[in-house]
Design a binder for these strands. Structure first.
Lengths: 197, 197
DNA sequence: CAATAATTAGGACATATATCCTATTTTAAT
DNA sequence: ATTAAAATAGGATATATGTCCTAATTATTG
């Protein structure tokens, strides 16, 4: 099995990943990716026989990357709250990209949903693993039954921040809302035994 | 000036509006719209000389519709809180469409941003008028300086709800979060004089 | 009714793009 | 080193699409 081919394959996926994020999936052509990688279309086609195939590979990589990132945080930080704050800080750390291209996960799902693309159900797994990880953290913080709902709210709020930041091209709003989100989370943790949830 | 032409023009815009929402802007062709209206491409081109022109017309209509909707609520309800609840209920009232196609405003802005389309700045006015209207309502409720921030949060949260509902194709989540959003707004109004904002 | 303007239809054209195919070059295996 | 497999390049093809053009039809106006 070609070792060289595998390396190129990964370069192609990385390129496609970037371009899909910056320009959108449909709006990115085989030629775009091939040119970005510096290979011919024919060679590209040797590695990926269809556009769905490269999309599938991109989603897989993103999913793997997300899981790895979450795992690292689980190891690196003992405090679940700190872990969640790390999650929220993704927004701040990528504010410039978000301003220009929105959220990579959200904007991809939005596009796939619009085209009724069957791979939406693979793409939204990227959200699902985050939701599940957040739920675990929140349960450790004492939120019982409500943990999953709060996790979903965290996802939704993050998405909203990304969409509006992107629409208004306004990073200030992002920072403002991140502050609000952290504050909200604090309250959520503080009041966790108010209603015995 | 042709009266007949104006009527057809409006039918075209209405069709484009729908199709842009359901399939996305780039993914909708002249032929798609012409076919949907029941006219020839040539005739279509007589009314709209470019794709940007029809996009512009769609954004204009949406903007007009939004302003009209907000004006009506301002007249129909005297209680600003009820007005805002009406705004939030858009989500519930369109839950099936949102599940399938997301938010018409948000998904359009996301697409335009991704293509670096200059008309993004026109499209986000659809959000801006909502933000301003919400700000007015919130000020009437006693939120002073914080009104605009709360208005923006309302927009962002709504967007997040739409994006996640769409990504997971899950209307239950929408209803859940709408409840949460209304509750949050209540608290916001209740505690409006806590910090004297 | 005549003539001018508005409207409509449908074809022409250039371009872009996903996909396929074949020839050539590079790498790996015996 | 020779041979088989892997990798790469670049052209061919079919299709879609935005845009343009011209001829025909309909509506309007004097």
């Amino acid at each position: 099995m070609g070792n060289k081919g595998e390396a190129l394959r990964q370069r192609i996926v990385a390129s496609a990943d970037q371009l899909f994020y910056q320009q959108g999936y449909e709006n990115t052509s085989f030629s775009d990716i091939a040119e970005d990688v510096g290979i011919s279309r024919g060679n590209f086609y040797y590695h990926f026989k269809s556009k769905d195939e490269i999309l599938n590979a991109v989603i897989d990589t993103r999913l793997t990357d997300i899981v790895q990132m979450l795992d690292e945080w689980s190891k690196k930080y003992t405090d679940p709250k700190q872990r969640i704050f790390e999650f929220i800080d993704i927004l701040t750390n990528h504010q410039n990209n978000i301003k220009n291209h929105g959220c990579p996960l959200g904007s991809l799902c939005t596009e796939l949903a619009k085209q009724n693309h069957p791979m939406l159900r693979d793409a939204n797994k990227m959200f699902a693993v985050q939701r599940d990880w957040l739920t675990v953290q929140l349960k450790e913080l004492g939120l019982g039954k409500g943990a999953k709902q709060v996790a979903m709210h965290l996802l939704a709020h993050s998405q909203g921040i990304a969409t509006i930041t992107n629409a208004f091209e306004d990073q200030n709003f992002l920072r403002q809302e991140v502050r609000r989100l952290k504050q909200w989370l604090d309250e959520q943790i503080q009041g966790q035994n108010k209603s015995g949830n």
